[in-house]
Every structure is written in C-alpha cells, then in structure tokens.
Computed example of a mutant assay.
Amino acid sequence: MITFYSHCLAAQETGIAYTSEFQTDFRKGTKWVNLLRAEFEFPIGKNFGMEMASISIAETHERPLIDDWQGFSNIEEENTPLALAVLGIRWQLKKSFLFVGVRNLNEDYFTSPYTSLFTNSSCGIFPTLSVNYPIANYPLASIGIDYKYKGNRWSFEASAYNGVGYKRLTGRENVFRFCPESDGILGISTINYQNNGSSYYMGFALRNGMSACYEKGTEESKEKKEWNALVWGYAEQNLSAHWHALIQYSVNPTVLKGCRSYAGGALVLHCGKLESGVFAGYAGFAEGNEWSGELTCRIACLHNMYIQPAFHVIKNSRVHGCIGLLRLGYEIRKP
C-alpha cells in the first residue's frame, strides 16, 4: 500500500496516509491492523531536495490468522511505533533522478497501477525476493543509492542497498548501518515500457550473503559467500476501455531453501470510482507449493478515502482456508 510520488522539487509537500484493516477467518479469529504513513519533502537547491517518510504499525495481536507463506495482507507486520521508510537527498535533472540515503524497496519496485489493487503481499515484491532474503522490504529499510531515468515510454531504474534491512533508529540493527562484509549487498534493476494503457516490466536482482532461510537459524550454508540471482517480469495489458489483464512470473534458481518460483495472473475492471479484480497465484517453495486466490474491489469516496473488501482462498501443505478483509484508507496531501 506504499506508493511512490514523482514530481518536481520546486515546492514543499507533506502527506499523511492512514490504512485500517479488519481481518476474519470466518470462525473465531479476528484481527485489526493499522498503518500510518507520513511524508515530507522540501527543496534545498535548484535541483536538490530532501525526502522523508515514516511508518507506524499497530495491531490487536501479532499472531497471524492463517499459516500462509506469502502473506495475504500487505500491511500486516509486527507492532512498530515508528520506523523510517525514506530519509535522504534527491537530485533531479530533466528525466534523471538520483537518491542517496535510507530507502525502502517498496517505494520504487513492483509498484504499478493494477498490482496495487490487490492486498496479497505477493502482488508487491515477489516472494522469490522478499521471502528468501532479509532485504529492505516493508517495514524495513536500509542505506542505498537509487537511480531512475523516466522517458516518455521507456524507463530504467538501478539500485544498490545494504543486504539486510532494519527498522531501528539506534543500536546495531539501525537503518543507517552499511556493512556489506557481514550483511551482504543487494543490487536490483528494472526496465519498463508503457504504451496505450499497457505496461511491461522486466528486472533482475543480485544479492551477496546468506539467505533469510539460514540467517534465521544457525545452519551454515554454501550460499553464504555466493551471489544469488533472480529474474522477474510482469505485464499489465489493456484489453478494453475498462478491462485489464495482469500476468506475473519470477524464478530464483540459486536458492536451496525458500521460494524458488512464483507466478500470478489477474483480471481487473476499472469503472469510474470502482476498481475490482480477481487474482490467482502460485508460489513454489522448497517445502511445498502454495496456491492463493483473491477477489476484491476498491470504492473511492469522499475525495480522499476508499473502502476495500477482499476475500482470500489459501492452500498449502499446512493449511486450506479462507480469509476476509475490510480495508479503509484515507489520505491527506498538502503542497
């Protein structure tokens, strides 16, 4: 639910976005999750500006309602009073943008108009990347450098980050830490093409360091000092004035554990203030496969607000169940 806004650095801008989500497993389990994001930008020169964004997460309990592997809610995380998502300097010259500082990958990658409709986490950063490595994925961030070129139809982006993301402001696990020797390093890039209402994305990532599957335990792996690579691609195809198709695919052949492949597809209907869609996805893990489906719609109301119910069906080797969501979002943006 995090969106990147690109604009000229000529004026100060602030924004606050609040997302509230009620979850149920249709039996006895319920949960309430809240996300608050604050943004602030101001110019510090002709082509330079400072960006800052923070996130806060509050939920009634941290136990998930279902033991899924991908994450049916893209805002659900452990309680976090305050964490940095962005803090740094941006340089802009014509169609080029360069950012140096603390950044979250969700600001730039795997963000597009119709993937953002769905609430499943895999419609954000694909699990072949987010599950396998402790990268700067929401709500974590890390020190990095990000470059973008935005043409009329073609765009290109390349970034390098500390290989492990953090959310603390002090101590060893702080977001300002940059230590490739122990944390590894992540390189990621993508090339995109937009034309006639359709968008196409292709990218790859390289990470040096131990995978998340081993870092959470004590087992040593030959992956520790090797480069791991993955590739992905997805397309949002315009079918008619109101209908769009979404196709996603990613493969990570270098990991021994975790998620090795992912594929997803969706149909999206856009009609005025109503967006609705149906999504089906597959993720191949070393311990088994997970299938997921989502039916959702988003209704815009009161200028800055939206209401979004969603229904999820999830099946893996551990569980087979359904989850219902009711999401409310409200945003205030002031130039």
Rank of each mutant, 00 (worst) to 15 (best):
F4C: 15
E220H: 10
P43E: 06
I2Q: 09
G45N: 06
F279G: 03
N208Y: 07
E39C: 10
Y147D: 02
P134E: 01
N196S: 13
N162W: 08
I143Y: 06
C8E: 14
V268F: 03
A158Q: 13
L302E: 02
T14K: 15
Y147P: 06
S142I: 02
F204M: 15
C123L: 12
L35C: 03
I191A: 14
Q70L: 12
D108I: 07
H270P: 00
L105D: 01
L302W: 09
G184S: 09
P64K: 06
L9Q: 08
T24A: 05
C8S: 15
Y330N: 06
G284Q: 04
A283H: 00
V313I: 12
F22D: 04
V231D: 12
S54C: 03
P335E: 11
V251E: 03
E290N: 04
L295F: 12
T80V: 07
E226N: 12
I66T: 09
G144T: 01
G88T: 01
R327F: 08
K224E: 11
P139I: 08
L93H: 14
I188K: 07
K28Q: 15
G101Q: 02
L93P: 03
Y114T: 06
Q23T: 10
S54P: 01
N304C: 10
F178H: 14
K95Y: 11
E157M: 08
I125V: 15
G324R: 05
P180I: 01
S159I: 07
L267M: 10
P134R: 07
K216T: 14
G265F: 03
D108W: 01
C8W: 14
A53P: 05
S54E: 07
L117H: 03
G163Q: 01
H242C: 10
D67S: 13
R260T: 09
G124H: 05
N162M: 06
N132A: 09
V268D: 05
L169M: 15
N304E: 05
K334Q: 09
R153P: 00
N120M: 11
I299D: 02
W69H: 11
Y109T: 02
I75E: 02
Y249H: 08
F279T: 02
L326H: 09
V164H: 13
N195Y: 11
F285P: 04
V278I: 15
F311D: 10
N228R: 15
A212M: 12
N47L: 04
L256C: 00
W291Q: 07
N228A: 15
G293L: 01
Y149G: 04
G124T: 08
F72L: 14
I55C: 11
N228H: 15
A53N: 02
S240Q: 13
T3R: 13
I332E: 08
N152G: 08
Q70Y: 04
K216E: 09
N195R: 15
S155E: 05
W32D: 10
Y200I: 00
L84G: 04
